[in-house]
C-alpha cells in the first residue's frame, strides 16, 4: 500500500473539484468496503481519496407518488429494511439484503455498490497485468474462469459484481450524477459500460463526477418484482448468477416485463428477447423453462463456467415462476 491523502469534502462542489483536480489519481470514497481492499492489495494506487461521507442530503430515502429517490450514501442495510422499498420495490430490498455480510451492508452505500470494481481474481491480483488494468491480456480467456462471464463479453471477461444494479435495472431506475457544475441523469442501463466501450471503467463517470442519487419510478399497481441470487455460500459471496424480474400483470396477462441477469456479463444484463416473449402472455400459460432457455440462448461459456448457462436458465425460470404464482 502506498501513502495517500484523505480529503473530507463538505459540499458537492468541493468534492467534485478536488477529485477533478487530482484526476486520474483521485478516487471517491464513501463506505470504503471495496476501494480500501484495492489499495491495500496494491491493485490500485491513488494520491488522494475524496470522502463523500459528509455531504448533506445524500443519505435520504424520499418516497412520493412519482416514485422513490434514494441518496447515494444510503447504506445497503437501510435499503434492505426500508418499509417502502420492501413493500413496493421488493427486488431492490432483496438484492441489497443478499450482499456480503451484515457488517458490509451496514457500511457499504448504494453509490459505492454501483461503482464497485470487478471481482475478477486476475484484476484483483497485482501479479496479473490484465486488460482492465491497461495490460494486453485477459487471463480468463483460456483457464481459471469459473466465475467469469458467459454473456456479452468480447475481450475482457469480467462480470459486474453489483447485486443492487441488477434489481435497479429491472425496476427502470435512473442514475443522477453530480459534478461541480450541476447534475445529469440517465437510465441506469446507460450508466454502465462494457469493456468494449471503455476497458478501464465500468461506468460513464467523468473526472469530478459521482453518483448522487438513484430514482425509481413508482410501479403500477399490478407490478411485482423479485431478485434471486445463486451463490456458493450463504453469506459473504458474490453471485454465481442472479436474476431480477419485474412483471406488470393485468387481468392475468403480462403487460410489461423486464428480466435482468447478474453475475454473468460485464454489465447488468438485460435480455429484451425474454421481455418481449413474456409480454402479452397469460400468466397461466407461461412456459418458464422455455423462458429460462431463451435468456441464455446467446451464452458463450468459457472453459470452466458452462455450469453457469444451465444455472442461469434455472434462476430465470424460478424467478418468473415465483412472480406469476404470486
Amino acid at each position: 500500500m502506498k501513502p495517500f491523502k484523505f480529503e473530507q469534502a463538505t459540499t458537492a462542489v468541493q468534492a467534485s473539484q478536488t477529485h477533478a483536480d487530482a484526476a486520474p489519481n483521485a478516487r471517491f470514497i464513501s463506505g470504503g468496503t471495496d476501494i480500501l481492499g484495492e489499495i491495500k492489495e496494491s491493485v490500485l494506487e491513488v494520491n488522494i481519496l475524496v470522502s463523500l461521507a459528509g455531504l448533506s442530503g445524500a443519505s435520504e430515502i424520499i418516497s412520493s407518488d412519482l416514485g422513490l429517490e434514494i441518496g447515494a450514501l444510503v447504506t445497503l442495510a437501510r435499503i434492505a429494511s426500508d418499509q417502502s422499498i420492501v413493500e413496493t420495490y421488493p427486488a431492490l430490498a432483496q438484492a441489497a439484503e443478499s450482499v456480503a455480510t451484515p457488517q458490509i451492508r451496514n457500511v457499504g452505500t448504494l453509490g459505492g455498490n454501483l461503482c464497485q470494481r470487478p471481482r475478477c481474481w486476475y484484476y484483483r491480483s497485482p501479479l496479473f497485468d490484465c486488460l482492465k488494468k491497461g495490460g494486453e491480456t485477459c487471463f480468463a480467456s483460456d483457464e481459471g474462469n469459473k466465475y467469469h462471464a458467459i454473456l456479452g463479453a468480447e475481450n475482457c471477461h469480467i462480470v459486474h459484481p453489483s447485486d443492487v444494479a441488477v434489481a435497479l435495472l429491472a425496476l427502470d431506475a435512473t442514475v443522477v450524477v453530480s459534478n461541480a457544475s450541476g447534475d445529469r441523469q440517465m437510465p441506469i442501463g446507460d450508466f454502465f459500460v462494457s469493456p468494449d466501450v471503455n476497458m478501464l471503467a465500468e461506468n460513464v463517470l467523468e473526472p469530478g463526477e459521482f453518483v448522487s442519487k438513484v430514482k425509481i419510478p413508482k410501479p403500477s399497481s399490478g407490478t411485482r418484482s423479485v431478485y434471486l441470487k445463486a451463490k456458493e455460500r450463504q453469506a459473504y459471496d458474490f453471485a454465481l448468477s442472479s436474476v431480477a424480474v419485474s412483471l406488470e400483470v393485468r387481468d392475468e396477462t403480462i403487460t410489461q416485463a423486464h428480466v435482468v441477469l447478474g453475475g454473468v456479463a460485464p454489465v447488468p444484463y438485460s435480455v429484451p428477447q425474454v421481455d418481449s416473449e413474456l409480454t402479452g402472455q397469460k400468466i397461466r400459460e407461461v412456459d418458464v423453462q422455455a423462458i429460462g432457455q431463451l435468456a441464455v440462448k446467446d451464452a458463450q461459456p468459457l472453459s470452466d463456467n458452462s455450469y453457469k448457462v444451465r444455472l442461469t436458465a434455472s434462476m430465470v425460470a424460478r424467478a418468473v415462476s415465483r412472480l406469476i404464482s404470486e
Binding site: 471481482r119 481474481w121 491480483s125 501479479l127 487471463f139 483457464e143 466465475y147 455460500r233 450463504q234 459473504y236
Partner: peptide
C-alpha cells in the same frame, strides 16, 4: 492456474463455510 498461481487467494474467493 496453469502457471502455478493460486487464483482465489483471499477468504472471499477461498470459500470456507459461514454459520449460515
Amino acid at each position: 492456474s496453469d502457471s502455478g498461481t493460486m487464483d482465489n487467494v483471499s477468504l472471499l474467493d477461498y470459500r470456507m463455510p459461514t454459520s449460515l
